[in-house]
């Protein structure tokens, strides 16, 4: 976890200049919903943010204490840590249009 966060910090520094996207996907185990969410996210990122994104998947079944920090209630939840401000998208990310709006990618 610690390693991941320092890595994120480094990316964050670059993110200011190079428009780096730091995304975090919270799931609880390998449920159909979480698998669908990850697949949908990967697809959207490849399409719109190729080369400038990083996805961190956090399984709350393994690290339940992490749910508190990002105020996770619903699962799956995608948190856009960078660029700021923080955005949250809940659901299996099946509706690409809404994910793009939620992540503010549309303008890019």
């Amino acid at each position: 976890m610690k390693a991941a966060s320092t890595g994120k910090d480094k990316k964050a520094k670059r993110g200011v200049t190079e428009e780096n996207w730091n995304l975090r996907l919270y799931v609880a185990g390998q449920t159909p919903k979480s698998i669908a969410a990850f697949t949908n996210l990967k697809k959207i990122c490849e399409e719109y943010l190729a080369g400038k994104y990083q996805i961190e998947v956090i399984d709350l079944l393994k690290n339940p204490q992490l749910a508190k920090g990002d105020q996770i209630i619903a699962l799956p939840t995608l948190v856009r840590k960078l660029p700021e401000p923080i955005k949250k998208i809940i659901g299996d990310l099946a509706n690409t249009e809404r994910v793009l709006v939620g992540l503010d990618i549309r303008a890019v």
Binding site: A28, A36, Q65, K68, I72, L75, I90, L93
Partner: peptide
């Protein structure tokens, strides 16, 4: 802050409570 896309549940709440 929250956008809803598709199916979800409140497992996060359960996990937090359980924790």
């Amino acid at each position: 802050e929250i956008e809803e896309t598709g199916e979800y549940d409140l497992e996060g709440l359960f996990i937090r409570l359980g924790n």
